[in-house]
């Protein structure tokens, strides 16, 4: 799967899982997920961890990597692709 396709999938999955009141296509891949960006909070962070595990079989082993991985949808996509490559 290409990075662009993965980003589009993540946008749809995140909007559906978190019941966000925005259109997936209106989200910028580099937009911050937390605080001033989409305005997600710590409960959403847990939802994102489970989403990544359920849909892509990728576990976030080190909690301290969280802020970097979940900075934006783009960084999430990079983390997933990186880990999928290692698994293969």
């Amino acid at each position: 799967m290409s990075r662009e396709q993965l980003i589009e999938d993540l946008k749809r999955q995140i909007v559906a899982q978190l019941n966000l009141q925005v259109q997936p296509e209106s989200i910028n891949a580099d937009e911050p997920l937390f605080n001033e960006g989409l305005g997600l909070d710590s409960i959403d962070a847990l939802e994102l961890i489970v989403l990544m595990q359920q849909n892509y079989k990728i576990r976030l082993v080190n909690a301290e990597d969280g802020p970097k991985v979940f900075q934006s949808i783009g960084t999430m996509a990079d983390f997933i692709l990186e880990n999928q490559a290692e698994q293969n």
Binding site: Q17, I43, L46, E47, V50, Q53, Q54
Partner: peptide, 12 residues
């Protein structure tokens, strides 16, 4: 999900 990977929102 066989009691695994449960998301927090619905529980809360």
């Amino acid at each position: 999900n066989k009691e695994e990977m449960l998301t927090p929102t619905a529980f809360i």
